[in-house]
Each structure stands twice: as structure tokens, then as C-alpha cells.
Amino acid sequence: MRDIINMTVVLTVLCALAGFGVAWVDSITRGPIETAALQKVAGAIDTVLPNKDNDPIADRINVPVAPDHRGRPQSLTVFPAKKDGKIVAVALQASAAGYAGPINVLVGINLADQKLTGIFIAEQQETIAAAQQALNPATKEGKAFVSQFAGKSLKKALAKSDINAISGATYSTRGVLAAINKARSLFVKYRDQIVK
């Protein structure tokens, strides 16, 4: 009997201490892990937020949004571009269904006139050749398609007539537009919390 109690106590204490140890290391490493993951999008943020004098990743704002279907808290990460300490533009990600999968777009929005500062296709699985070219900023077609968004007004939701669509890839065009409009509605909804 003493044996069993001894074993139970030792193992329980050991596991509890291990739990505390791991939790402590987690509290130290959580910040750096998040930063390291975000460093990958640093280049994309630079292309959609060209005019700034701060580090948008370090200054990122986490806005609490509605919880998901299981009731877990969710947050929206917004990257602000600042000039002289004031936010002049923000970048945020949104995704919408394309032709073959979700299209994830990083959208940069200017605060003063609510115009697009630029977009970056962060993720896509389009299969149509025309769509692949148009969504890849390394190609000529890609530059033409993606760069036309800069300067478009987001006062109203972006419509298909506002842009030059990708011919032969209607669904991909629609997906990009839908993602931008999703980002727009998030921006409009949480604007007051982003710009305090």
C-alpha cells in the first residue's frame, strides 16, 4: 500500500512540475514564435504598404472579433503602416473561394481616402494557366493584374466592372474580388478598434 501511494505521489508531483516548466518556457517563447512566423509575410507587407517609417509586424494590432462556431475567441491581425507615429494605412488578410481552392489576399487600405494601397496574393491553388499567370506577381500578366488594384477606392465594395478581369478565369477574378471585399468589410467593421 505504501508503495502505491509513494509511486502515485512521485509521478503526480513530477508531472505537475513538468507542466509548470513547459508552461513557463511557453510564456517566454510565445512572442518570438509568433514573430518568427510573421517574418515570412514581411516581404508581402512591404509591397502592399510601401510608404511607412515603422515595422508593421512589430506594431501589429490584434483586434478581437466574434468567436468561432465552437465559441473559441478569434482575433484579426492588422498590420499598420505609420508615419510620424500615426497610422496612415493598414494591411489585413482575407480569403475567399477561387476556382480550385481558397485565394488568400493581403489587402492594404489607406485610411484617409479609403483607397487600396496594393494587394498581394498570399495563397492560391488556381489550376487554370491564365489565372496562375495573373496571380503570380513574377510574370508580366501578374504585374498587370495585381498592380491595377492600387488606387481603387474602397468606399463601396469593389465590383467586377471596376477592374480588368482575367480573361478565361472568371472564378479566380471573382475570388480575388470577394477576398478584397471581405477585407474591406472587416476594415469598415473594426476601423474604430484599429485606429484608436
Binding site: 513538468a18 516548466g21 517563447t29 518570438p32 514564435i33
Partner: peptide, 22 residues
């Protein structure tokens, strides 16, 4: 007990590497 000890240090290494040598 050994496995608990080893697993704890492995988790620590995992988090440290993720944070500082991604």
C-alpha cells in the same frame, strides 16, 4: 518518470527552436 522528464525537455527544445531558430 524518465519519459516525463525526457518529454518535458524535448517540448522545451521544440519551443525554443521554433522561437529562435525557425
Amino acid at each position: 518518470a524518465y519519459i516525463v522528464i525526457i518529454a518535458t525537455f524535448v517540448t522545451i527544445v521544440d519551443m525554443m527552436l521554433k522561437a529562435f531558430v525557425p
